[in-house]
């Protein structure tokens, strides 16, 4: 680099730029916190939804699946699983999930297997409530189609 550009100037860009953009990030974060209630429909987080999230975490579902595109890429996206299999009915979806979880592992040779997690009926209901709630977050219309 040219000699006219010295270390002191480089240092000032680092400190000035670093501090400025960190403060900007903090400011944008505050703004997002104000905006989020309109987008995440948090008023619908029932105890069942909260418990469903805990069950999701305790069984490390994210270790195979993705949720809103984040997680592992070994098993299907689940933020829109309600749109995919629910046919618009929460009851239908919950019944589907009960049956599906009870069936695991499918034991089709060579196919990727989901373990049997031994969840109770009410736990699966809560998991369904969590996935239904998640499907209704305003996520700028991701994914592009039902398949996720």
């Amino acid at each position: 680099m040219a000699d006219s550009f010295n270390k002191g100037m480089a240092r000032n860009i680092y400190y000035g730029g670093g501090v400025f953009f960190f403060l900007l990030l903090v400011g944008l974060t505050f703004d997002t916190m104000l905006e989020l209630p309109k987008r995440d429909h948090r008023e619908n987080i029932t105890p069942a939804v909260a418990n469903g999230k805990a069950i999701w975490e305790d069984n490390n579902c994210i270790g195979c699946h993705s949720l809103m595109g984040e997680g592992a890429y070994f098993a299907p996206e689940l933020a829109n699983v309600y749109d995919r299999y629910g046919q618009g009915s929460e009851e239908t979806f919950t019944q589907f999930l009960q049956a599906w979880m009870a069936m695991q592992p499918l034991k089709t040779e060579g196919r990727r297997q989901m373990p049997q997690f031994h969840l109770t009926e009410s736990e699966v209901n809560d998991l369904a409530a969590f996935l239904i709630w998640t499907s209704r977050i305003n996520d700028n219309d991701w994914p592009p189609n039902k398949q996720g």
Partner: peptide, 12 residues
């Protein structure tokens, strides 16, 4: 897909 299942599931 089922290699080492259920001893070492993918998530583990």
């Amino acid at each position: 897909g089922d290699f080492m299942f259920p001893y070492l599931p993918f998530n583990v």
